[in-house]
Design a protein around this nucleic acid. Sequence first.
DNA 1: TGCGTTCCATGACTAAAGTCAAGGCCCTGC
DNA 2: GCAGGGCCTTGACTTTAGTCATGGAACGCA
Lengths: 226, 226
Amino acid sequence: MDTDKLAALGGIKLFEGLPQAQLQSLAGIAQLRRCKAGETLFEAGQPGTHLFAVVSGKVRVFRASLSGKEQVLHVFTGGEAFAEVPVFEGKTYPASAQALEDSELLSIPRKGFVELLRRDPELALGVMALLSARLRAFVGQIAQLSLKEVPERLAGYLLLLRSAQGRDELTLDLPKGQIASYLGTIPETLSRAIKKLSEQGLIEVLGSRVRILDPEGLARLAEADR
Amino acid sequence: MDTDKLAALGGIKLFEGLPQAQLQSLAGIAQLRRCKAGETLFEAGQPGTHLFAVVSGKVRVFRASLSGKEQVLHVFTGGEAFAEVPVFEGKTYPASAQALEDSELLSIPRKGFVELLRRDPELALGVMALLSARLRAFVGQIAQLSLKEVPERLAGYLLLLRSAQGRDELTLDLPKGQIASYLGTIPETLSRAIKKLSEQGLIEVLGSRVRILDPEGLARLAEADR
DNA sequence: TGCGTTCCATGACTAAAGTCAAGGCCCTGC
DNA sequence: GCAGGGCCTTGACTTTAGTCATGGAACGCA
């Protein structure tokens, strides 16, 4: 029954180029698992025993405060691995994870994965690259949160989507509430920021469809500095 | 003349436990370098060719906005390595670095370091642990910035210092302006936050000396949630 | 000793974003 | 076709933090 797992593992970017033998041994220890929209995978502070990868679906990783406010750190989709931190360091997950849609996930126990890394320096380099990319993203997020205001962060986010989707007619990939939480704000404030960009003629919004009217203007705003 | 370098390398936590032969080969490619307080080591966006380590002194890593506002990401002191991100991923430094004091630094070219990693899986695991610890710290910083107000962040910072210094009479390790920038605010606001904690009887401040009067109260505040 | 610089504290004001409350839109399921 | 729920928008208000301007204390240096 490992053929399912093998196929799933083959679709994970982190494992691209891994020799067949090592994929086999991963398949031996990995679990393939389905979960439903809204299901919690783990919570910040829990002992972190597994590395995860998204085969299909969408998972958000976030931190919550006691009062229920949440900050989204990242949303992972097909082919991406996450929850590496406790594999290498410490014992607990630093954030919580929840499926946003019905999803298929791979979970790989910490110990077996570390063994594999010891034997395969190229995989290790791949993991370091992944961790580094995530660090770079977090540095950007910290800078955005502390140095920019909401409309500027929104402009940056839209430009990101634009380059991901490759055109000016965007489809918002998340409900607006989640986007607000990713931008470090609340839905009301996001709403007003969207209105502001529209009024300035930078974008045009219809539900979850956004048309970028003035990419340069958006870029200027995203860099802007008050 | 590599004896200086060897000694310096031996003091870097990341290289602890490395076999003598590999330290030698590191010494062969590393540069030992002094720099003065205020000196810029590199700037965000520049091509990142070297990994750094602090032998002595203090270096802050930060992001600046065009208008001159700055967000401190971390302050590195003796024994710590930094600027690993561009070694493994991308081409540029994601943030800027500046010496806060006269410092001694090691710089290690990217390429030689990657070679070493390929040959020594244990070092590679050490690097992954380091990157993971940094990710965990950034997750915490993002959560603080977006979920907590300045007095709460300050309370958390003071508790951190307390556990680092192991007693209730703290010496602030940075000028207050730098602390403000690390907490994602400005000196005026930090000033007022300090005053607020003092008035609440949680701390007592005299210049750069802080006495923690009520650790539990601070902890409650740091967790607090409005 | 006195000058200048840097850092810090304070006050008055402004601007940004969060809170609370209400209402609209759209989809789903009966 | 209608009821109910989620999600989003809007408005009025409050709170928080940033801005600007000023003055004081501490330190280094002539």
